[in-house]
Amino acid sequence: MKPVISLSPHVHGGDSVQKNMYGVCIALIPALVASLYFFGLGAAIVLATSVAACVCFEWAITRFILGRKQLTICDGSAILTGLLLGFNLPSNLPIWIILIGALVAIGVGKMTFGGLGTNPFNPALVGRVFLLISFPVQMTTWPVSGQMGYVDVETGATPLFLMKEAIKSGDASILSQLPSSLDMLIGQTGGSLGEVSALCLLIGCIFMLCRRIITWHIPVSILATVWLLAGLFHLIDPSYADPTQVILSGGLMLGACFMATDYVTSPMTAKGQLIYGVAIGVLTVLIRDFGSYPEGMSFAILIMNGFTPLINTYVKPKRFGEVKK
């Protein structure tokens, strides 16, 4: 017998990259079911295209451009990126636009930097923001939920659009057109695929917290900050929407639970994650209320992704036995 020798520890907890990535995918299943329920065929086509494209692009780039033998598509990160990208798109988006989005997400957002673990920005968001800027019309006409088709669907104003209008005109009565909070929680509104049902996203988030895939710091700090700040604006001027509806609208829940918590692009320490979450919350509200776009979540996350290395450099965990100076 030739014994194996290695330094301690000699046992491992059994956690793996796959477990985490597929764990997040499982957490997205309720939202996936909800999107299929509300958007039917459109959702299926968009999501399938997005996931398949992301996996194929990752495979092709690792294999042919980077020339790596070891393929990484099995680790589940490309599937996750595809799912998240799909969740951020309207259900009637043409396939060719989705393909471009997937190429930018995987190619520019992830593989240019060396693949999983090295990308500074959330790949799915890079893809989404690229599409939002390049194809603003297609990306901001949202089918009204409850339609099962892919083409020729009726589009309508989203809650976010109404909120923006109310602020612009200073007319609080526009807000009365908003769906009820309960409808927004369950998903009876227009919007991107994965955004519509805040409830399903919350269920997924709680699953991830229980499986210790993520910690509470980022989602809680984002939601709390947005609620408090939006509440403050609402108190000062009622033409700003009710904070609960702000939280339930648009991509906020998806962003707070699934996009901002992305391992690679979020800070490493609990303190840093709180700073990151609060900053995302503030930026989101500011962009939503004062920027030119109705939605600010993706921009806020991308901006704070850029600050993550800085936060990691300056925010250190509390060392054992550290004496406060």
Partner: peptide
């Protein structure tokens, strides 16, 4: 034998596991 090594995904689990508060 140890499992196959893959790139760091910066999940910060080591940071929260370290009993000395290191990174």
């Amino acid at each position: 034998r140890r499992g196959e090594v893959s790139p760091c995904i910066r999940c910060a689990k080591c940071v929260s596991a370290c009993p000395m508060g290191l990174e």
